[in-house]
């Protein structure tokens, strides 16, 4: 089955997924995704008329908690894994408003 995944599709998806791909990777992913998507396309042959999507296998509902404050992390540990911080906030390259 041809799925028609082209390098422009790969690049578009990579942009959404925030991945920077080398030319070689793009080429490889065109092949691999075509193969995988081609395999996955067999699902389109299943008759799913009147079948509701299953988004939870378990019949659990209403997992709710009461509105009670629990102590937050000390700031030091909130920031402890940050690649860059200034003791108060996380630092990232400029966010343009």
């Amino acid at each position: 089955m041809t799925t028609g995944i082209e390098s422009k599709d790969v690049l578009k998806v990579a942009k959404l997924a925030k991945l920077q791909l080398t030319e070689e990777e793009v080429k490889r992913l065109v092949d691999e995704l075509s193969q995988i998507v081609g395999y996955v396309d067999q699902l389109s042959s299943v008759d799913t008329t009147n079948v509701a999507p299953l988004d939870h296998v378990l019949d659990v509902t209403d997992a709710l908690r009461d509105d009670i404050v629990i102590s937050s992390l000390p700031r030091e540990s909130a920031l402890s894994n940050a690649p860059k911080e200034d003791g108060e906030t996380f630092l990232v390259p400029p966010v343009l408003g």
Partner: peptide, 25 residues
Amino acid sequence: MLGTYALSSGYYDAYYLNALKVRRL
């Protein structure tokens, strides 16, 4: 990449939603 593709606009119904239906079967 595969997951982003399956959820992206235009492919959601054909891939993700359909997979959830087959999952029920």
